[in-house]
């Protein structure tokens, strides 16, 4: 059962990382446009000559 000393903190850390990731993505406006995000995944890539679409800065989606 000594393995718990490892596994429990590991599990909690992983959980905490997941939560942080979620909160970060929420703050970053990634849930502002769920419909559009779905389509973007299958949209054609930008041609190399054009500038890539910039990632929006915090909360620019809508305010």
């Amino acid at each position: 059962m000594e393995v718990l000393v490892f596994l429990v903190p590991l599990a909690l850390t992983l959980g905490a990382i997941g939560l942080m990731g979620f909160l970060w993505s929420l703050k970053n406006g990634q849930y502002d446009d769920l419909e559009g995000a779905g389509w973007r995944a299958i949209a054609d890539d930008e041609p190399a000559s054009e500038e890539p679409v910039p990632v929006p800065s915090t909360g620019t989606g809508r305010r």
């Binding site: 299958i42 054609d44 054009e50 500038e51």
Partner: peptide, 25 residues
Amino acid sequence: AGCMSKIERGLSALPDVTLARVNLT
């Protein structure tokens, strides 16, 4: 999705535009 990329490309092509992002929702 087609409209989305058409608009984003069309607007990004204007000089000095730093962000053009469609919110489909």
